[in-house]
Design a protein around this nucleic acid. Structure first.
Lengths: 237, 237
DNA sequence: TGTACATCAGTGAACGCGCGTTCACTGATGTAC
DNA sequence: TGTACATCAGTGAACGCGCGTTCACTGATGTAC
C-alpha cells in the first residue's frame, strides 16, 4: 500500500541525485556513445564512490533503460508539442512540424537518437516499459492524419494500389492497436511507409550515409516529407 | 615499383591467415557486436599470440575498416547478382529483387548490417576507402530505374509535385556523381526516397521497432517496396 | 516533544576480469650473387 | 646450385589502463511510541 505523502528531505535529495546521475550519463553518452557510458566515470564526475550509484540504479543496464525511456519521452514530447503549436485545421502544417521535430531533435541529441534508433546494444534487452514511450511518435503522426481524414480533407494520391491480403491483415492489426479503426486501411499503410521513411532519412543523415552525396540535407528532407504527405493525401490549406 | 609475381608460399600463407582473422572477427561480431570484437579474443581463438595480429592489421580500427568494406562488398555483390539474375526487361522484377536482397542479407548478417548501417562506432572514423563499396547498393537501384527509363517503360505516378529549387540542385548533384544525367530529375528524387525508405524499413525490422506491431514483417516489406516502385513508375510487364 | 530503533545513503577496499599496444627476441622463408 | 644476408612471422612478457559489482562498515535521516 503506497500512500502519497509530503516528500521528506531524503526523498528530495534522492530525486535530485537521480536526475544528476542521468544528466551526467547523458553527457557521457554525448561524448562517446552508449558503450562508453561507465558507472565509475559517472561516479567520478559526481565526486562520489562508484558503489554509491547502486543505491540509485541496480545495474548499468537499468541506468541505460532509464536513459532510453527519457529519450523516447523527450522526442515524443517535442513532436507532440510541435504538432499542437499549429492550428488543428492545418493538417499538412502539423505533419511537417512533426517530421521536422524528429529531425531537429535528432540533430541536437545525436547520441540519444542513436541510443533509441541505432543498432541495439549487444547484450542489452529492452524491457516492456520502453514500448509505451516509443509509441508516442508514430501515434502523433497517425493522429495528424486521422484528424485530417475526419475533417474530410484527405485526398490520397497513392492509394490506387490495392493492399494484398496479408498486408491488409497487418494493417488491421495496427488499426486495432492504435485505435485508428476509423481511418481507411490504405491510408494507414501510407502512414506506416512515411513513418519508416522518416526514421530512415534521419538515420541516414545522422549516421553519415549522405555525406559527400548531398550538401543541403535539409532540402532533401523537406522534399521527402512533402512527397510522403502528398502520397498520404495531406494538402496545403 | 610493384611487379606482380607468382605468389610465394609466404604470400599464400599471409592471405590465408588474413582471411581467417577476418572470419573469426565476423564470428565475434555476430556474437556480440562491434564493441565486443577484441583482438585478444580473435588471437586466442586462432591459437596465436595477440601481438601476432599486428603483422596483419596495424590496429583494431584497421581490422574494423576491413570488415566494413567486406560487408559493403558482400551486400553490394548480393544485390547486383539478384538484379542480373532476372531478365533485363523485367524492370519491376529487378527492382524487387534488389530490395529483397538487401533485406535477406541483413536478416542473415544482422551484426554486419549493424556495422555498416547502424549507429556509428564512437571514436571510429570511416576512411575514404569505404565510400566506393558503399555506393554499389544505391547504384544498383539507380541502374534498374535508368534501364527502365531508357527502355521507355517508366510510368511515374508520384512526380506531379515539382521539385523545389534547392532540391533540384541536390538532385542535379547526384545525377552528376552517379552518371545518371539522362534520367528525369523527379525520378531520381523518387529513387532517393525509395533508397532511404528501404534501409529505414530494414533497420526498423532488424533493430526491433516493429516488434509487437506486425507479425508478418515480410508482408509489410513487400508492400513498401511495391508502393515505392509504383511511385517511381516501375510497372509489371 | 523526546527518545530508541529502523531505514537508508554513501564509503573504501577488494575481486576478478579483459583490453590494445609495444618491444626485444627467435627462427623460418625468400632473394641476390 | 649453394651460400650469405635481409626480410618477415610469430612469441611471450610487460605496460598501463578501466571496468561492473559486492561487501562490511559508518553515520545521517526518518518514524513510532
Amino acid at each position: 500500500v503506497d500512500v502519497a505523502k509530503t516528500p521528506t528531505a531524503r526523498d528530495r535529495a534522492r530525486a535530485e541525485l537521480t536526475a544528476e546521475i542521468k544528466d551526467e550519463s547523458r553527457r557521457q553518452l554525448a561524448a562517446g556513445g552508449a558503450e562508453a557510458l561507465s558507472l565509475r566515470a559517472v561516479a567520478r564526475e559526481l565526486g562520489m564512490a562508484s558503489s554509491a550509484l547502486y543505491r540509485y540504479f541496480p545495474s548499468r543496464d537499468d541506468l541505460l533503460t532509464a536513459l532510453i525511456i527519457d529519450s523516447y519521452d523527450a522526442l515524443g514530447g517535442q513532436v507532440e508539442q510541435s504538432v499542437s503549436a499549429r492550428r488543428a485545421a492545418d493538417h499538412l502544417g502539423r505533419w511537417r512540424a512533426a517530421c521536422r521535430a524528429v529531425r531537429s531533435w535528432a540533430l541536437e541529441h545525436p547520441h540519444e537518437y542513436a541510443l533509441i534508433y541505432g543498432s541495439p546494444i549487444p547484450g542489452y534487452r529492452a524491457p516492456r516499459d520502453t514500448v509505451e514511450p516509443a509509441a508516442r511518435i508514430p501515434y502523433a503522426l497517425l493522429g495528424v492524419v486521422r484528424d485530417c481524414w475526419q475533417a474530410g480533407r484527405l485526398e490520397p494520391a497513392g492509394t490506387d494500389l490495392a493492399l494484398s491480403r496479408t498486408m491488409a491483415r497487418q494493417v488491421d492489426l495496427v488499426a486495432g492497436l492504435t485505435a485508428m479503426e476509423s481511418v481507411p486501411r490504405p491510408t494507414l499503410a501510407g502512414v506506416l511507409i512515411a513513418w519508416t521513411h522518416l526514421f530512415g532519412a534521419v538515420s541516414f543523415e545522422l549516421f553519415g550515409h549522405l555525406e559527400g552525396v548531398f550538401d543541403d540535407k535539409g532540402a532533401v528532407f523537406e522534399h521527402s516529407i512533402n512527397q510522403l504527405a502528398h502520397l498520404i493525401g495531406l494538402r496545403p490549406t
